[in-house]
Nucleic acid binder design. Structure first.
Lengths: 239, 239
DNA sequence: CAGTGGTCTAGACCACGAA
DNA sequence: TCGTGGTCTAGACCACTGT
């Protein structure tokens, strides 16, 4: 049997992708749409939920439902190919003194309560936040926070560490897809139902010591991550 | 004002995390729960939707709602650190002759319609599918499909290509978080609301030719991807 | 205040799974 | 077949936004 909210969603999706409902424009009010499709309000709203999850529609309480503008995606370019083509994000940084705790304390291999410096990076473009990064460094490695950040991934912390004599050996990036915490959703201005790319990056120096941990969160519908690997032969050729 | 479905979700969540509702056990039927919390059925179901999205509850049409068992995660280990610690997945492979189309044709840099060989890998553990991979090779490079696959990511196709003389240069992996297509959801036995990690891997040979494209889909709640980078110094040391 | 979406209900009927 | 969850409705009332 045909499921009505799916049928309605299919038709509205068609109208959007065909351009009958222009990007950025306001959709008819829910009552009108419900009448048009001869379904109840709940059913129509369910159809809009489907489209919202697909990223086609934005709902604004008290204002109306809108066709979402196509979002340009940003790319997180792993730790290696630093020859990244313009990320072009406006980046805001905040610094805080915090105590090691939970995952961070575990990843850094330091006991809970150990003093850390936390850098919070928020990358924006077109007035919309696109990336959120928390970078943690043990207080010992006290790094001067550069006034203006260039990389939304906290690479300047890394560079500052290199400048102060740290020799990096290995970087491990664990990537997962999940739903945002309420704080992340608020910071990135996404709904709790938008999936995010979560990247946990640990950098280890030549002594086997974890010197910096970065936790990145990218909205799934506006970002992707890219990792490039060169074969052994290729690496030798460039040397 | 307190939102009732959130209150109900909060209480059931407490009962689950405190162990009052044991992992794997069946929840009371929806009618009972609705009566217990003195809410309508729709409201109760909305609360369960919240918990389902959080991965705490599994809903089974016609059977009941269950407290989800903690899921062991599997790890996709990039293309490089092939020294992966036991993936331990049972892998099933299917081979098909297909025509290049859409994304695949674009990534391979061949015109649409060009004959390709498609390998479909389904990785399972504990009777549950955990990974889905589609690997595409131009028909020219006809590779003998090995009877039993070892890698759920299609690495044996890659190895077969190496054995037949292909020299790989660079591998690019694009990672994104999104919702599954209905086909993916069916194959992985997840709901349309579980986010997935989508990995698009292209391998280029020394002539700059894309020789193999792999599209991987991992259920976000049961998998993660790991990428390891070694510093230049580290690489030289191992040579 | 008017317009719009968000929450909630009670009850009808459909679809799935297991016995 | 029976018990279960899934879909759907009509209508009430609440909450947010802009004038």
């Amino acid at each position: 049997m045909a499921i009505r909210y799916q049928n309605v969603a299919d038709d509205i999706r068609r109208l959007i992708t065909s351009g009958a409902f222009a990007a950025g424009s306001k959709l008819p009010v829910e009552g009108e749409l419900a009448a048009k499709y001869r379904v109840g309000l709940m059913t129509l709203r369910r159809a809009l939920d489907v489209l919202q999850d697909e990223g086609l529609v934005e709902k604004h309480h008290g204002r109306g439902n809108y066709v979402r503008r196509t979002l340009q995606r940003i790319t997180y370019t792993g730790s290696r190919d630093s020859g990244e083509a313009g990320v072009c994000l406006h980046v805001a940084v905040e610094t805080a003194k915090v105590a090691a705790e939970g995952t961070v304390s575990e990843l850094l291999g330091v006991p809970a309560g150990r003093p850390l410096t936390e850098y919070t990076y928020l990358g924006e473009r077109d007035g919309l936040p696109r990336s959120l990064a928390h970078v943690y460094v043990p207080r010992d490695f006290d790094v001067l926070p550069p006034g203006a950040a260039v990389s939304p991934w906290g690479d300047d912390v890394r560079e500052a560490l290199v400048a102060s004599g740290v020799a990096f050996a290995t970087t491990v990036e664990r990537v997962s897809a999940r739903f945002p915490t309420s704080e992340e959703a608020k910071a990135l201005r996404i709904t709790a139902r938008t999936s995010v790319l979560a990247i946990e990056r640990t950098s280890i120096d030549v002594n086997g010591q974890v010197v910096v941990v970065a936790l990145l969160v990218l909205p799934g519908d506006r970002a992707e991550a890219r990792f490039v690997t060169f074969s052994q032969a290729e690496l030798e050729a460039t040397q």
